[in-house]
């Protein structure tokens, strides 16, 4: 078989739009071509290139769980040229999608373990994929603990799902907002994620942790977990360097010899420590 041209995108129709926070939206995407839908599979942790024709492509993780079939979801903040153009799209508009790219979280290896998620701001979407993946087969895992923070109450994403998780007895959820970001009605925690993590340390026995966030949160969060007894090989993160091609060619995402797009984006703390800190 001819190798697939990895630069030709799938055509995706915007099936629904959810406003999550200021400038942050979730798009549910459906394949225009049914054949594509049949072929397409992905696993938790993988990402894709979402393109607005005429504007360019932007990289984000797939935010929906592979256990939910028939659609993909992505959540993005409009900051640059492409994300702003994406945000200006309307329901039923057609956008491009290339992927899935990158490696995945080894979810099967986690069966029977306690899982800890540490994340902040707009980095919850990549973990939401994993969280639902786990929750959809809840019986296979031990405790699930989620630490999530945002700059302000308004900036929290997936507000309804946060409600849902917090009301579940089989999920322990810590939601925090940065000092100054709280509202009078806010009943949750106030403080930066690493602080909350340090003050409410998760148990490390038989546990894996997944840290996702801005580089600063990754750089601060992983050592805290490590100090709390987590094995460096059991601390995972997903890096989001600048990417263009998604297939290990364009060179933008390199950290040393590593192409984050094809060798990652999922890395263990053990692997991260071997890399230059250029992420």
């Amino acid at each position: 078989m001819e190798p697939k041209n990895q630069y030709i995108p799938y055509k995706m129709r915007i099936a629904s739009i959810t406003e999550e926070a200021p400038l942050v939206q979730t798009y549910r995407l459906e394949f225009v071509d049914e054949k594509d839908a049949e072929q397409f599979t992905f696993r938790a942790g993988q990402f894709a290139e979402y393109g607005v024709f005429g504007e360019g492509e932007s990289t984000f993780c797939i935010a929906s769980s592979p256990t939910r079939e028939g659609y993909l979801e992505c959540t993005f903040r409009s900051t640059g040229r492409v994300t702003k153009a994406l945000a200006n799209c309307e329901l039923n508009d057609i956008i491009g999608l290339r992927g899935p790219f990158g490696n995945t979280f080894p979810i099967e290896e986690w069966y029977g373990k306690n899982i800890v998620f540490v994340t902040g701001g707009i980095a919850l979407p990549p973990l939401r994929c994993v969280i639902w993946n786990l929750l959809d087969q809840r019986e296979k895992f031990g405790d699930i603990t989620i630490y999530y923070g945002a700059r302000s109450v308004n900036d929290l994403v997936y507000k309804e799902e946060l409600e849902e998780w917090s009301s579940r007895s089989d999920v322990k959820l810590y939601v925090t907002v940065d000092p100054g970001g709280e509202t009078p009605e806010w009943k949750g925690l106030v403080g930066f994620v690493p602080t909350v993590l340090e003050q409410n340390p998760p148990k490390s026995d038989n546990a894996v942790a997944i840290v996702a966030g801005p580089p600063i949160l990754i750089k601060m969060g992983m050592p805290i977990l490590s100090k709390n007894g987590f094995d460096n090989a059991n601390i995972y993160t997903t890096l989001e360097n600048r990417m263009k091609c998604g297939v290990g060619k364009c060179g933008h995402c390199t950290v040393g010899k590593t192409y984050v797009c094809k060798d990652g984006p999922v890395f263990t703390y053990e692997e991260v420590l071997k890399m230059p800190a250029e992420y």
Binding site: E55, G56, A85, K244, C245, C250, H252
Partner: peptide, 10 residues
């Protein structure tokens, strides 16, 4: 190394 860019209109 390369960059990917769109040119033209939407």
């Amino acid at each position: 190394c390369f960059d990917i860019q769109d040119e033209g209109t939407q």
